[in-house]
């Protein structure tokens, strides 16, 4: 493919700046700006809720509840990084609450079986039609669980927000941050050695 963005790191910075600007407008009561923030960050919230072991419908509810809580506390959130961290923290707390409720009520419900955070390798092979995607997924599966948990969330975050997101996830500050970090370095090393994977 030839139409690959040349400066991805720069594009990510632009995204973060845009998010900050929309947050500003949303705080002033602009509904469209709030909609745009929702569209931008829903994939992250979904991933965080699913990583807590929630079934599909539970995760969808948690995402909504988190946004409702946000609207109540919007005036206290001053930057796009603070927004992302706040949303990750609240999504996790809401997920725990829902999981506590469902486990108490239906301990052997099928929902708990469905909620394995990583899809098993069988369906992944079927769902990923491109060889480079399958290669990436296989290498991710070889990483330690802590790395998988981290990269799964970080992949949906604008890169300048790495550190705050790691903190919101309760991970040690040194494990990510402005530098590449061990998990991504390890993944990159494995991908570089794999001839079936290419960056584009």
């Amino acid at each position: 493919m030839s139409n690959v963005p040349v400066d991805r790191a720069g594009a990510s910075l632009d995204r973060a700046a845009r998010l900050g600007e929309r947050l500003e407008r949303a705080r002033a009561g602009d509904r469209d700006a709030l909609d745009e923030v929702v569209r931008e960050l829903n994939p992250l919230l979904w991933r965080v809720a699913r990583a807590q072991g929630l079934a599909l419908e539970e995760a969808a509810d948690v995402v909504q509840t988190t946004w409702l809580e946000l609207v109540r506390g919007l005036h206290t959130i001053r930057s796009s990084s603070a927004l992302t961290a706040w949303l990750v923290t609240t999504t996790r707390r809401e997920s725990w609450r829902v999981r506590g409720l469902t486990q108490r009520q239906t301990p052997h419900d099928a929902a708990t079986l469905e909620s394995s955070p990583d899809p098993d390798p069988g369906p992944a092979e079927l769902l990923l039609s491109e060889e480079r995607d399958r290669a990436l997924w296989q290498h991710v599966a070889r990483l330690p669980e802590r790395c998988r948990a981290l990269l799964r969330i970080v992949a949906h975050v604008d890169r300048p927000d790495y550190t705050v997101v790691a903190e919101a996830l309760g991970m040690p500050r040194g494990s990510i941050g402005p530098t590449r970090g061990r998990c991504l370095a390890k993944l990159r090393e494995m991908l570089a050695a794999d001839s079936t994977w290419s960056p584009t």
């Binding site: 690959v4 991805r8 992949a155 890169r159 530098t179 590449r180 991504l184 960056p199």
Partner: peptide, 12 residues
């Protein structure tokens, strides 16, 4: 992080 890291995370 460089552009390749960015590309890997976007692909993920």
């Amino acid at each position: 992080l460089d552009d390749l890291d960015q590309a890997i995370l976007d692909q993920l």
